[in-house]
């Protein structure tokens, strides 16, 4: 059986402090804390998303953003179906870091990875350092989903994951059409002496 049919691995990548964990917590538990501790490791949470054509279960890997853990991220995006690249709209450096993440995904990431870009901390839009148009056109140029989000106010969080879910479903239906039915027929009977071997029909 295809165990992955219902589950999709999503990984969040981005500089430390851009709000990756907050996005996940808002999405999964609908909570927000302004002072959560930095993630040391890759924390795993899951959520079922309801779509018109069925459900999809996200297995979400929230990775540590600190630079010293950077090389470990590959463990998580290597098998991911989708990656959410998060930057802080009030921090241009984090936007550049996001672009570097994308570059790394192109070079080392899995094929057909769905990429979504989240410009987080939309609630601090007055301190914006990266204009939406710039990020949006970058997202378009790489074929990524783009969403402005705020884990604090919920803004865009649901939609972000929903759009990813829809894209995953679309991709899946293509994939399942490509690889259909691979079952082996085993015949324990034919190993027994005295029983006619491989008496297949219509041959």
């Amino acid at each position: 059986m295809d165990d992955n049919s219902a589950q999709a691995k999503v990984v969040l990548l981005g500089e430390a402090g851009v709000g990756k964990s907050s996005i996940v917590l808002r999405f999964v538990a609908d909570t927000y804390h302004s002072d959560i501790e930095p993630t040391i490791g890759a924390s795993f949470l899951s959520k079922i998303v309801n779509l018109s054509e069925g459900t999809i279960k996200f297995g979400i890997w929230d990775t540590a953003g600190q630079e010293r853990y950077h090389s470990l991220a590959r463990m998580y995006y290597a098998e991911a179906v989708a990656a959410i690249l998060v930057y802080d709209i009030t921090n241009r450096k984090s936007y550049e870091a996001m672009k570097n993440w994308h570059k790394e995904l192109v070079e080392q990431g899995p094929k057909n990875l769905i990429v979504a870009i989240a410009g987080n901390k939309e609630d601090l839009v007055e301190k914006e350092q990266v204009e939406m148009e710039e990020a949006k056109s970058f997202a378009e140029s790489i074929g990524a989903i783009y969403k402005k989000t705020s884990a604090k106010t919920r803004y865009g969080i649901e939609q972000l994951f929903k759009e990813i879910a829809i894209k995953i479903k679309d991709n899946r239906s293509i994939v399942t059409r490509e690889k259909r039915g691979s079952i082996r027929v085993t015949s324990a009977v034919s190993q027994q002496p005295g029983v006619a071997k491989e008496k297949k029909c219509c041959s």
Partner: peptide, 24 residues
């Protein structure tokens, strides 16, 4: 004839053949 195909032909498109075994 391929037994998997033969059996699959007897099923509907909405059904999946998970396992097939020749038994007595």
């Amino acid at each position: 004839m391929n037994p998997v195909k033969t059996v699959q032909n007897k099923l509907r498109n909405s059904e999946n053949l998970l396992k097939l075994e020749i038994v007595t």
